[in-house]
Amino acid sequence: MPTDVSGLLATFQSPGAAARAIRELRGTGVQGIRAAMPAPYHEVEAALGNPPSQIGWWTLGGAIVGLASGYALTCWTSADWPLVIGGKPIVSPIPYTVIAFECMVLIGALVNLVAVLTSAFVGRRRARMPQRPAFSQNRIGVFVPCASGTAEGSCEMILRREGAEEVERAEA
């Protein structure tokens, strides 16, 4: 388990105010800021400056594997039971494209599901922050890890100036 981090937890009413506070704090050199919010507000995500998710590559990989599996299944089973049907070639890639397409979507979607759930689990573990029920309702929580008392004071000032409803000391 990651060790506990202490810092300031601020509660905001609006995504815009939370984003402004995060940007200003990052501008002063504070790192490791985390947020919790009831919906994916783009301005908050942009202010945090997190790198883009790599889920797309996993999904693409799943889709390619699915496509290849679809063709492999149809071609191999046709060759394994070589019965001419409707005068068509034993291995008929054109009709098999329908099956390959469906397999591509199916396996791509399932890999995407696993990737989303894994990413959420890893994201929770890596960027832990104090929990408040309001963060799943109508408030945005911003957690600022602060190393020293001096930094904490200036962080709190910025958070309050940008419209934090409440600022408290918390551990994540």
Partner: peptide, 12 residues
């Protein structure tokens, strides 16, 4: 509801 969760979720 953490930002680490939303990032992958929105993309997924």
């Amino acid at each position: 509801n953490g930002d680490g969760e939303w990032r992958g979720y929105a993309r997924g």
